[in-house]
Design a protein around this nucleic acid. Structure first.
Lengths: 162, 162
DNA sequence: ATTGATATTGATAATTATTCTCAATTAGTA
DNA sequence: TACTAATTGAGAATAATTATCAATATCAAT
């Protein structure tokens, strides 16, 4: 299947422009962290943004090594840690499994999961967040993050189980 | 400091009685799991109940090895896993740190964990629980459970990292 | 552009927590 | 008491992550 030439050219142009913009943003992210901009770091950020969310360090490494066969996984681990510490990336850990990473979205949310069908609703509740802060303060902790997962039966599954 | 003889005798009696009762309960827990009762397993349960909550496998091992120098840490790990799978024990994991274990209590509580040293505080906040209920209701869910883990820097680690 | 101080890199060793293996021992039962 | 299957301890194996260090690349100042 071929597209009309004009269309395809415009498409290519757009891609190039977008790549430049992203690259610029990536560079700014790295500079914001007070670090030097390197090809390896740009590739890692690209992999995190382009691929699916919740990837392991190994998965990031496998994507990046395609474009730069000489990269070492220590570099990936190192940079992921820095990104996590700076808050640009979220680290999610489950059991004893490898940590998974995702670009932190600006929009914070928690999850409400149906224990029967697995449907997930995202929600955000400012009052809960404030109470969490106050609990942490009460114990002398400086809050840096939280995991709140609610489990229940969704409307559909409540009907079915009756 | 010495106590009046009578008192001290009664005290000793109580201790013995309690030990027997606990030992019986421990045996029942093990039998409920369909496993054989061994001295090692009784000692592990004793350590989990007597010591402070939220201990690592290594910490359990260190307590138990005092009473039975020949025990291997594989035995501790193995049994802790079984206890966790059977729900008699709760496993709490934070970051890449060692898992921590506690006897599952009837009293519900959430955790506030230090991301630096792994120290865990338990808390209970009725307001948060009520808000969770209302979020669930809002989405038409019938709430059955939740996980709330707060992460932060404890007072000590805040000082150290300055 | 060249240089130089310093950060970064890749390879590999080290570490940490946990699990696996297996021969010897032990608990529960017949 | 003897048998059978579960359990044990020691140490090897694994898996994820971090530390080490000499070689290289970045960036700021010239």
């Amino acid at each position: 299947m071929t597209l009309p030439r004009q269309h395809s050219e415009r498409h290519a142009e757009k891609l190039v422009r977008r790549e430049k913009i992203e690259s610029k943003n990536f560079k700014n992210i790295i500079r914001d962290m007070g670090m030097k901009v390197t090809d390896q770091r740009l590739l890692i950020l690209e992999a995190l943004t382009a691929g699916r969310a919740h990837v392991t360090a190994q998965e990031v490494f496998e994507v990046v090594v395609e474009k730069d066969a000489s990269i070492g996984f220590a570099t990936v681990y190192r940079f992921l840690r820095k990104l996590t510490e700076s808050g640009f990336v979220n680290e999610v850990r489950m059991g004893g499994l490898a940590a998974r990473y995702e670009m932190s979205s600006q929009v914070h949310h928690d999850h409400l999961t149906c224990t029967h069908c697995g449907k997930i609703c995202e929600f955000e509740n400012h009052d809960i967040e404030k109470l969490q802060e106050s609990v942490a303060k009460q114990f002398g902790y400086q809050l840096t993050g939280h995991v709140l997962e609610l489990y229940g039966l969704c409307r559909d599954c409540q009907k079915k189980s009756t």
